[in-house]
Design a binder for these strands. Structure first.
Length: 356
DNA sequence: AACTCGGGGTT
DNA sequence: AACCCAGAGTT
């Protein structure tokens, strides 16, 4: 274990990528980066990270901000619940800890949106606590290094990789050690084609010694992704009334898919006629859709594939609210000038629907 | 333990 | 097309 630690730390020292969140010890900044990096690639996160910290530079600033502003800053990043939980987390830290991220493991873990991985990341990187962490990269590295032949995402395999991470992190520079494990998984110990020739611990890798490095880690089979068909409408108000020129957006309920985000109204319906009826009922005004000129928008998510038929249409009048029967989906509607859409929390799917 | 939740790059 | 990524919360 000591030799592996030393090899990993020396390799990391010489090969670490220069990432924005590695240039700070501010626990808030590290926290923000870790939430953004959940299931999201480094290159995707970089611009969001810089913009987010510029707009919300402290726990207090984030806690004071309206959730809608936070969602707007998250627009396009995905997994929007993360933004909601991060905001809740800021409120929690502001109230329970006076705005300072706590240095206690249990207190960190109690922050909304902070799970086992993020606890270890904040504790080790911001406070140099000997707290382990296991993400997808670390799970793969440890599965190979110690030849764990069970799915590291659950059951005994999960317990095993966390125990190994706990043993490895004990010692000096826990933050660097954790980063070294992640860096190794991100750069050399790749899922398909690991570059073992350049690996600092290849001589001690149990999987490589047994010739099974490409078959580990064991992963569960994935379920097929169902295809869901929906309709959406990009609606504008005719004439010169209030809101003329704007496009109608609905704000989705907090829970579920795209929670709290704005989008052109999107409904499942058997056909175009039914969709127009649903839409008119939801908005309480007359809707005019052309028979043709529908566009097809496809959007792939983790657990489903959306195929959306998009119509450009007109409103008979400006709707004031969502009908009660539809408030399990939308909580508010607004006519938004195209130029103001960037200030709303808008999903990438909504951008595609608006895109034309 | 299973399920939900985005988006995008790589192979 | 398949794969997978600095995961967490709910049921």
């Amino acid at each position: 274990m000591r030799a592996i630690r030393a090899a990993l730390l020396a390799w990391y020292e010489a090969n670490a990528r220069d990432l924005p969140w590695r240039r700070t010890r501010d626990p808030y900044a590290i926290w923000v980066s870790e939430i953004m990096l959940q299931q999201t690639r480094v290159e995707t996160v970089k611009p969001y990270y810089a913009r987010f910290l510029a707009r919300f530079p402290s726990v207090e600033a984030l806690a004071r901000a309206p959730l809608d502003d936070v969602l707007a800053s998250w627009s396009g990043l995905g997994y929007y619940r993360r933004a909601r939980l991060l905001h809740q987390g800021a409120l929690h830290v502001a109230e329970a800890h006076g705005g300072d991220v706590p240095r206690d493991l249990d207190a960190i873990r109690a922050i909304p949106g902070v799970g086992a991985y993020t606890t270890g990341a904040i504790a080790s990187q911001a406070f140099d606590l000997e707290a382990p962490l296991v993400d997808g990269n670390v799970a793969r590295v440890l599965s190979r290094l110690f030849r764990v032949e069970q799915d590291p995402k659950r059951g005994a395999g999960h317990a095993r990789v966390w125990a190994l991470a706990g043993e490895l992190v004990r010692g000096e520079a826990p933050g660097a050690l954790n980063n070294a494990l992640m860096e190794l998984g991100a750069t050399l110990c790749a899922p398909r084609e690991p570059r073992c020739d350049a690996c600092p611990v290849r001589a001690r890798c149990q999987a490589r010694l047994a010739g099974v490095e490409r078959t580990l880690p064991i992963v569960a089979e994935k379920k097929a992704r169902p295809v869901v068909s929906e309709f959406a409408a990009v609606l504008r108000l005719g004439g010169r009334g209030a809101g003329a020129g704007g496009v109608l957006l609905g704000k989705r309920v907090a829970d579920g898919l795209f929670g709290g985000m704005w989008e052109p109204p999107r409904l499942a319906a058997p056909d175009r006629t039914a969709f127009v009826g649903e839409l008119a009922a939801m908005l309480g005004v007359e809707i005019t859709l052309p028979k043709r000129r529908a566009r097809a928008v496809e959007h792939v998510l983790t657990h489903r594939e959306l195929k959306v038929t998009v119509y450009e249409g007109a409103l008979g009048a400006a709707p004031e609210r969502v009908a009660a029967a539809y408030r399990d989906r939308y909580v508010e509607v607004a006519l938004v000038p195209m130029g103001d859409i960037e200030q709303r929390g808008v999903s990438t799917l909504a951008r595609k629907i608006l895109g034309g």
